[in-house]
Simulated assay, not measured.
Amino acid sequence: MDEIVFFNPGDSIGNFHDHNEAVKTAQIYKEKQNQNKRVLVVHGVDNKDFDIFLADDVISHDNEKNAVQKPYRVSDRL
């Protein structure tokens, strides 16, 4: 079963057409920038590309006020 999460598209760390490139970039980003934070590689609902987000940027009921939301399907957790 797919896990659907919501993010503000402006919070994306990167956008890629290739899944392997997205995962590789996410691993490098995590290693260099935020070793203690979880990074998610997500697949857009349009199934055309992959985005990288910090797991802390998931939009929840607590932080959704005036947020532009777009649904994503979690592909990898790093």
Rank of each mutant, 00 (worst) to 15 (best):
D18M: 04
L78D: 02
V45F: 15
R77E: 12
F6G: 00
L40F: 10
P71K: 03
D11E: 10
E21D: 14
N8F: 09
D11M: 09
L78N: 03
V58L: 07
V42R: 00
D11C: 04
F6R: 04
E3I: 14
D57P: 00
N63G: 05
N8Q: 11
Q69D: 04
H19S: 09
N47P: 00
H19D: 10
G44S: 12
Q27V: 04
E64F: 08
D57A: 10
I4T: 14
K70F: 05
N8C: 12
L40A: 02
D2Y: 08
D76V: 09
V68S: 11
Y72K: 01
D56A: 10
H43D: 05
G44K: 03
S60V: 06
K37Q: 14
G44F: 07
R77Q: 11
G10L: 11
N47Q: 14
N8G: 06
V45H: 13
S75T: 05
H61M: 10
Q69F: 02
N20I: 10
V41I: 12
F16N: 03
D56V: 07
K24D: 13
N34H: 13
V45K: 15
D11Q: 12
Y29V: 06
K70Y: 12
N20Y: 11
G14Y: 05
Q35E: 14
L54W: 04
V74A: 04
F6Y: 15
G10E: 14
L54Q: 07
F53C: 01
A26P: 03
V5L: 06
N63M: 04
R38K: 14
V68N: 10
A55I: 03
N15K: 14
V58S: 02
K30Q: 13
F16Y: 15
P71Y: 06
K65Q: 12
N47A: 11
H43F: 07
D57R: 02
P71C: 06
E21T: 08
L78K: 04
V5K: 05
M1F: 11
N63C: 01
N63I: 01
D2G: 05
N8E: 15
K37S: 12
K37W: 07
D56H: 01
H19Q: 13
F7Q: 00
A67M: 12
L54H: 07
Q27E: 13
A55H: 08
H17S: 12
G14I: 03
G14V: 04
V74S: 02
Q33Y: 08
D57C: 03
H61G: 13
H17F: 12
I52N: 02
R77H: 04
A55L: 08
D11S: 09
H17R: 11
K65V: 07
M1I: 10
L54V: 05
I59L: 10
Q35A: 09
E3N: 13
N15E: 12
K37E: 15
N15L: 12
H19W: 06
G14T: 06
V58I: 15
A26Q: 03
V58R: 09
V74F: 02
N20F: 10
N8M: 07
E31S: 14
F53V: 00
A22R: 00
V45S: 13
K32V: 08
Q33E: 10
D46T: 09
D62Q: 11
K70H: 08
Y29G: 01
D76S: 14
G14H: 05
D18L: 05
K24R: 14
Q69P: 00
D56E: 15
M1C: 10
F6D: 03
D2P: 15
D2L: 09
D76R: 05
V42S: 01
